[in-house]
Amino acid sequence: MLGENIKLILGISDGDELIEVFISNAIYSIKNYLNNDNVSDEIVLEKYPNVIMELAIRAYMSRELGATGLKSITQGQRSVTFDSLSSPMAITDDLKAMLPTPYVRLF
């Protein structure tokens, strides 16, 4: 379902395997940001589908445009802006606002 929503937003009908790779990478990025070993892939899929979709869309658009340093593009109601130093899978401030505060480990 998440993959279908991403394809709908992007206006594409194929590319299932590529979208699944982007979803998997987005889940990994979110788990890495949250820094909590108790967060499973299923929890991320359930609680943060909008963040996953946004990361996957950014990755797809970056790949299609061939520019990881893209500054801005608007497609319909979607707008994507990349920093020249960040990757499309980076957890930016707008995505951090949709996620809980990362877990802090004390050693």
Results as ranks from 00 to 15, higher is better:
Met1Asn: 08
Asp14Gln: 09
Lys96Ser: 08
Met61Pro: 08
Ser40Glu: 12
Leu55Glu: 09
Gly11Thr: 11
Ile52Trp: 13
Ser79Trp: 03
Thr74Lys: 13
Leu2Val: 14
Ile9Val: 15
Asn32Ile: 00
Met1Thr: 13
Tyr48Gln: 02
Val104Leu: 09
Arg78Phe: 11
Gly3Thr: 01
Pro102Gln: 03
Ser87Cys: 05
Val44Trp: 03
Ser40Cys: 11
Met61Gly: 05
Asn38Phe: 06
Met89Ala: 05
Tyr48Asn: 11
Met1Tyr: 03
Asn32Ala: 05
Ile91Ala: 04
Glu20Arg: 14
Thr74Val: 14
Tyr103Asn: 04
Ala67Met: 03
Glu54Trp: 02
Gly76Ala: 03
Tyr103Leu: 08
Leu8Gln: 13
Gln77Thr: 10
Tyr33Asn: 06
Asn32Trp: 07
Leu8Asn: 14
Phe107Val: 12
Phe22Asn: 12
Tyr33Cys: 12
Leu65Cys: 08
Asn25Cys: 08
Leu70Gly: 14
Ser87Asp: 07
Glu54Ala: 13
Asp37Val: 14
Leu2Ile: 14
Lys47Cys: 13
Leu65Met: 10
Ile23Gln: 10
Gly69Ser: 15
Ser86Glu: 04
Lys7Ser: 08
Leu10Met: 11
Asn36Gln: 13
Ile23Gly: 12
Leu34Trp: 02
Leu95Asp: 00
Asp16Thr: 12
Ala97Ile: 01
Ser79Lys: 12
Gly11Asp: 06
Tyr33Gly: 11
Glu42Thr: 13
Pro88His: 01
Ile27Met: 00
Glu42Lys: 14
Ala56Glu: 15
Arg78Leu: 06
Ile6His: 05
Ser72Pro: 02
Ala97Gly: 02
Ser86Pro: 03
Asn36Thr: 12
Val51Tyr: 02
Leu18Trp: 08
Val51Gln: 10
Gly76Pro: 09
Ser72His: 13
Leu70Val: 14
Leu55Val: 12
